[in-house]
């Protein structure tokens, strides 16, 4: 009985994960080698992979996910700056903190719908810019294929920076304050204290957040893109990303085999990244 007890405790977990992931992951690999119509089809070897890897649209989607990675330094920089400012604990800082975390509380689809109105060509943002005589900055934020992905990126930074700020602030508040105090007494200014004393101690959490950001940009931007891109990664194919590519292949093109092949590739890449995350976390723990 005692020997069986541990298994009793983990049995629900094994059942749950087994039901959802068990056969599904296996079938995902299986489907990627089949020409699926409906729920099954003939084995076609690597053909799905060849088709996908030879399709410009696939590479364009991958490129867009990679382009989103460019936002990470900005995201981290902004979060860090805000966290350091909050850490000063000036009058009313808890109110600022509450407001600055608000973006993370709003659901992505809701905020994307709101932003989509704000960034219309003749919408409020451009009206303000034109009123300020900044007409050259009144771009077609969501209508131009050259700009739309940058607008998406802005929205992602806007929301994810809220999480970054809170994570960084939590780390700051857990630090031993005597070092900072000593530096202050020796006349180090705010910037020097931040750069030489605080930030070095935050390496672990910054690395951790970076990896989370990479995973987000590669495989968790569906809701942003779906709404800002008019449901199909537009204008043109300018906001098409891997998740949307899989979604389209599955639901709009009746090509589950193709969707599975791309899923397998995304899975393998994500597995590599999560491994990286743990290497980082372990280092942070040490």
């Amino acid at each position: 009985m005692t020997r069986l007890k541990p298994y009793l405790y983990v049995a629900p977990l094994v059942l749950l994960l087994g039901f959802v992931f068990g056969t599904s992951l296996v079938r995902m690999f299986e489907f990627s080698f089949k020409m699926i119509r409906g729920v099954d089809g003939p084995w076609i070897g690597w053909r799905n992979y060849r088709l996908v890897l030879n399709q410009p649209l696939f590479w364009e989607s991958v490129g867009h996910n990679l382009q989103l990675l460019l936002a990470i330094p900005i995201l981290i920089g902004l979060s860090l700056l805000t966290a350091l400012l909050l850490y000063e604990r000036l009058r009313g800082w808890t109110l600022w903190r509450a407001v600055l975390f608000l973006p993370y509380v709003l659901a992505i689809p809701i905020i994307a719908v709101v932003m989509k109105q704000m960034f219309q060509f003749n919408g409020p943002v451009n009206e303000v810019l034109r009123w300020l005589s900044l007409d050259f900055m009144a771009l077609d934020w969501i209508g131009s294929p050259d700009i739309a992905l940058w607008t998406v990126m802005g929205l992602i930074v806007w929301r994810e920076a809220a999480l970054g700020t809170i994570l960084f602030l939590a780390r700051l508040l857990s630090l031993d304050e005597s070092l900072v105090e000593a530096a202050r007494i020796e006349g180090a200014n705010w910037w020097q204290r931040a750069w030489h004393i605080l930030i070095p101690q935050m390496r672990g959490v910054i690395e951790f957040f970076s990896v989370i950001c990479v995973i987000t940009m590669l495989s968790a931007v569906f809701a942003y893109v779906y709404i800002l891109g008019g449901g199909r990664g537009g204008p043109g194919t300018s906001t098409m990303v891997i998740e949307l590519y899989i979604y389209n292949a599955l639901t709009r093109q009746s090509l589950p085999g193709i969707a599975a092949a791309v899923s397998v590739m995304l899975f393998v890449v994500s597995l590599g990244l999560i491994y990286l995350l743990f290497v980082v976390r372990r280092r942070q723990d040490d």
Binding site: S144, P145, R232, P235, G236, T237, Q253, S254, L255
Partner: peptide, 22 residues
Amino acid sequence: MPGQFYEQAAIPTGQQVAQGSM
């Protein structure tokens, strides 16, 4: 139109030509 053509050609071309980038 096949779904794939609709999504990847018909819509993107019209949007981009109307926008002036194609």
